[in-house]
Nucleic acid binder design. Structure first.
Lengths: 192, 192
DNA sequence: CGTAAGGGTGAACGCATGTTCAGGTGAACA
DNA sequence: TGTTCACCTGAACATGCGTTCACCCTTACG
């Protein structure tokens, strides 16, 4: 029927796939459902994507890139403000992208996305370590082990995200302040 | 052939199922594989369990009960010791039961185990809140919001578990001390 | 007009899964 | 020995999946 341009169709498929993956996870997503929601035929998907994996990878690369771009900006802020903003961004992201995060948690061990995941986690780890090191240098933070503390901070953020996902807590934002205080009391140099 | 007693067969099936579920998660587990590993036929499984869900639930109930029993004992300890032991137990459990935890994380939203999960999470929450309240009463901890702080502590423990599972960190035990310090500095009443 | 090509279709294929059920087998007892 | 019954078997069934491919439109161009 030649209804659309190729680039347009590809975009529509990606958007539909994004929806379905977020709702159902990787293995729960069927090509049939993506096709249905994109308003294209089953075979039509395979014109633009070799297979389901490729479709998934293309989406995941986008998501990681978006997240990375937003958090990398924090490097320029003051350590305290950067930490606060990091916590806020994490919690905010979790609230606004439940489906996406759910997908990545549920299928965390898919072999074909291992590299992508490692790169992502490492970049976050480096970012927080950087913030902490800056704080230590400036005398704002105690003389902590920055790598290890960065990891622990990320633990708590991911744990909060997970509990929110699990439905264990309703108002995630509420915990932002508690998290900030707990972290800060643990690393800040005493004023007195 | 009447090789075994019914109770024995059921136990063998449960053990096999435990293995396979831990390795492959719920949906990744096939009755065929459980049967193969239990040394019984496919149909044999259905003599003892109505279906896959029931098999899974029976196992999960056991696991939760074991965990709960071990942590409830901490109520009698001194708050500081209880916190330390709780952290230790969590990390230890994560290391020794990767497969199990992986299964629960990967299929966290299975409808038929929702109640079981909520009960489990709530009991942990109550336990930590109790420990904190005792500490506050004794003047060991600051006048914190016990419920909220308990949640944040559980965040960090679950986050640590998750990062370990994700392969992001290798030596989980190493982070026990960091976690303890961060938490403690955040809630302990200053000695001076 | 003919025809090539980009864009699209969906029935069909091969495979895997949870579940069923007609039937087998051996020990225990009459 | 014959009968019963608890225990067990695995081919068969219904379903659902990712993927393929022979074929169909519509447009562009000569």
């Amino acid at each position: 029927m030649n209804r659309r341009k190729a680039t347009e169709s590809k975009k529509i498929i990606l958007e539909a796939a994004n929806e379905v993956f977020a709702e159902r996870g990787y293995s729960g997503t069927t090509i049939r459902e993506v096709a249905r929601r994109a308003g294209i035929s089953i075979g039509g998907i395979y014109i633009y994507f070799q297979n389901k994996e490729e479709l998934y990878l293309e989406l995941t690369r986008d998501h990681i890139e978006t997240f990375r771009k937003h958090t990398e900006m924090l490097r320029d802020k003051e350590p305290l403000a950067a930490l606060k903003a990091l916590i806020e961004y994490h919690l905010d992201y979790a609230i606004k992208n439940t489906g996406l995060i759910s997908m990545h948690i549920k299928e965390y061990d898919l072999e074909f996305k291992k590299n992508l995941k490692k790169t992502f986690f490492d970049s976050q780890q480096r970012l927080v370590t950087g913030i902490l090191k800056k704080g230590v240098m400036k005398g704002i933070f105690k003389d902590i082990n920055c790598e290890e503390t960065a990891e622990v901070i990320l633990f708590s953020l991911r744990g909060a995200t997970m509990d929110y996902l699990f439905g264990q807590i309703r108002d995630l934002k509420k915990y932002g302040e508690s998290l900030y205080q707990l972290i800060l009391n643990g690393i800040r140099r005493k004023a007195a």
